[in-house]
Design a protein around this nucleic acid. Sequence first.
DNA 1: CCTCATATTAACCAACCAGTACAGAACGCC
DNA 2: GGCGTTCTGTACTGGTTGGTTAATATGAGG
Lengths: 232, 232
Amino acid sequence: MATRKVADNGGGEHRPAKRDPEGVRRDILSAAMEEFSLNGLSGGRIDEIAARTRTSKRMIYYYFGDKERLYERVLEEAYGKVRGGESDLGLDALEPVAALTKLCRFTFDHHRANPAFIRMVMIENIHHGRHLQHSETIRGLNRPAIEALETVLLRGQAEGQFRKGLEALELHWQISALSFFNVSNRATFTAIFGDGLFAGDGQEQLSRHVAEMVLRYVLTPDHVGAIAATGE
Amino acid sequence: MATRKVADNGGGEHRPAKRDPEGVRRDILSAAMEEFSLNGLSGGRIDEIAARTRTSKRMIYYYFGDKERLYERVLEEAYGKVRGGESDLGLDALEPVAALTKLCRFTFDHHRANPAFIRMVMIENIHHGRHLQHSETIRGLNRPAIEALETVLLRGQAEGQFRKGLEALELHWQISALSFFNVSNRATFTAIFGDGLFAGDGQEQLSRHVAEMVLRYVLTPDHVGAIAATGE
DNA sequence: CCTCATATTAACCAACCAGTACAGAACGCC
DNA sequence: GGCGTTCTGTACTGGTTGGTTAATATGAGG
């Protein structure tokens, strides 16, 4: 029974199986993510997080200090896990219209696939973004998205397909709004209007229409016609 | 000192100044709205609500039973106060394009003007809309918005300005998304990208562009050109 | 095998907070 | 002015919960 050696933890790593501080940290963080994203900062219970962990409550305080700081780390983690993505879409290889379409659909689907992240952002907004300002790490993280969009935009304008006077930041805002709302407000929207937009192929259609909406907004009037064929 | 008569409460009403149950109810509800919309359901403190009231904590329980039911009443109140609006926009008197534009801009501005409502909806979504399903009252409340939109849509299609194959519900979803996100995610968006879209004339421009985006989505390709003149 | 920093556990505590007991005031009605 | 009902203030409580204390286990370096 006294298996007190450097046991393999299944991953093939030569890390110690027992005494695995980094593992404990990640374990706590992931449990905390579940709990906080589900119940919010004030609603999340430290004891509940501890229960989800394979260690004890004391460890949470040992590694993270207090509830607030744990929450902040979870928030950073959430942003961190979701970042990137846009970078390796290979948008530069596509023509502007296809690139923008792909970006829209990716964003929509990506949000949809990461409800925990969405919920963390919702919660953070409830708290007026107080903890986000606190953390330097996150701010620089979302710039790439804007830059990628900016590039596509410029290319489209250069080729005469996209209108002048568009701002990448604003367009990002619009794409985000449509993609974010889809996840964040699903519960109330469904409760009021039914789940028609969420069940069956509703989401697939929404995804396509969001991209189409952005496209129609961006294209010059005489290029809009061409999209109709692509859309349906 | 024994001023135990039906004193005038300053408003000139002939209601009893003392013993005003309905007044107390409303007082509690409005205090609770502030507290809940600010701090959420689990974050909101009954004692804090009581402190904001001119009565005591006991009254909250006397009139509303418990925290959860108080929250539900606040939620209903929030939806109730915001409803209507669309009804008396006089959209029928306008031509379709103008009507849709007005509806978009109204929705955007209306959301913007009612952050407490937005926050209540955010909070309710965090709770998976559990309390909303609970309450029968609210569900029927937002139908008029859809119907108004549907009417405009049909008229626009009849006149050949709007494309076929559009759904009022989906369009409502899109308008809501753009208007809601603007308020709900302001904090995190500002923290990451700065307040360019929110300060100065940023909001006015966003409002116009949201309407424009919806219009461009809805119009047939050969009617899009006309909008450019209106937009700028 | 001794030592020290790191990591971990179980039991504990004090504050907070939703909800209540109870006593009593104000009102409507006769 | 008695009487039942509706309403209100004070003081309290019991459970929850964030956070801690003190003691101990573990591994690395000497």
